[in-house]
């Protein structure tokens, strides 16, 4: 017994020695994406302080002004668009819209989807079957067509976008959490709780939820860039936030006609969107490898 412990200790130590440089390299690679995600959150929260101007302010005399690094003035850092709105201000305020949507949709969908998943896994009889059949139907839906339909029906408002994206994303959590619960149910500690007379609600709350928590956190992280891109796509298709609000998706749509004359109008919001989506993906991948490597094949 003691020999085995000693063996493990040696193994652990040598593993550390081999792996350590790789780990450090990997963490260094994570600095840029983590910084970008942090900036995204800071921009979203303190938009009014970072870019005090009104994102909707037009200035026809100063339209399609160049960004400062391409011969423009420091008055408009990233240039202006076709009706003279300041692109920097609009990107910062656009980050706020994306952040609001993410901050409600991701935890909201996780809470609702996981609750349904836990219940469907625990009561895997008729109730569970019915819930999962519904989830199957929803996952078979062409989500984007449905989102546009709902967007057109409900009207342009960021709360409707939140509602649509909640509806769009909760089912994925339900399916994965249910699968986890189904296998947890057969484990000794859960069976012991049942034998000891624990109520269903108590077991779900105290034993099942904590054990699927890692899975939920990993999906939530991976969902952040998905939700940001989905919001931008809806705005791009014209059913997202109302016209007077600055969103990255709408900025990209509006810039399409000026692509040949002023590259920066479309590039700036597009790059912001791409950088945030890329960083979110990298951070999510890293967290998944750390917390729940089994989810690797998820895509």
């Amino acid at each position: 017994m003691s020999e085995r412990i000693a063996d493990t200790a040696i193994e652990t130590r040598s593993r550390w020695r081999i792996r350590r440089p790789r780990r450090i390299r990997r963490s260094l690679l994570l600095v840029p994406p983590l910084t970008i995600m942090l900036m995204f959150f800071v921009f979203g929260i303190f938009a009014d302080i970072i870019a005090p101007g009104d994102p909707g302010d037009t200035n026809v005399l100063n339209k399609l002004a160049r960004p400062v690094f391409d011969g423009g003035t420091s008055e408009s850092l990233l240039g202006t668009d076709h009706i003279g709105r300041d692109i920097w201000t609009r990107i910062v305020h656009g980050a706020r819209i994306s952040l609001i949507v993410v901050a409600i949709v991701v935890p909201g969908a996780a809470l609702f989807g996981s609750t349904v998943g836990v219940i469907a896994g625990w009561r895997s009889g008729k109730l569970g079957q019915a819930l999962m059949r519904y989830v199957d139907v929803q996952l078979a839906l062409p989500a984007i067509v449905f989102a546009v339909l709902l967007g057109a029906a409900l009207g342009a408002s960021i709360w409707n976008v939140v509602l649509i994206l909640l509806f769009w994303t909760w089912a994925g959590y339900a399916r994965l959490v249910r699968a986890e619960v189904l296998s947890l149910k057969e484990r000794e500690f859960v069976i012991a709780s049942m034998a000891a007379g624990g109520s269903g609600f108590w077991i779900m709350r105290k034993q099942l939820l904590p054990n699927v928590f890692n899975t939920i956190v990993v999906i939530m992280t991976l969902q952040v860039p998905v939700v940001i891109v989905a919001e931008a796509s809806l705005s791009f298709l014209g059913v997202g936030a109302p016209v007077e609000q600055a969103t990255w998706g709408r900025m990209i749509t509006e810039a399409r006609n000026y692509l040949t004359q002023a590259w920066w109008v479309m590039w700036m919001p597009g790059l912001a969107l791409m950088l945030v989506a890329l960083s979110g993906n990298l951070v999510g991948d890293w967290l998944r490898d750390l917390l729940d490597p089994r989810l690797r094949n998820l895509g």
Binding site: A232, S233, I252, W263, G270, L273, A277, L278, G280, N281
Partner: peptide, 22 residues
């Protein structure tokens, strides 16, 4: 793979139009 996964398809399309069609 990382870029392919993170780039929104409509943005990729517009970039391709910009570089290879305009």
């Amino acid at each position: 793979a990382v870029f392919g996964q993170a780039t929104p398809s409509f943005w990729l399309g517009l970039m391709l139009i910009f570089f290879l069609a305009v």
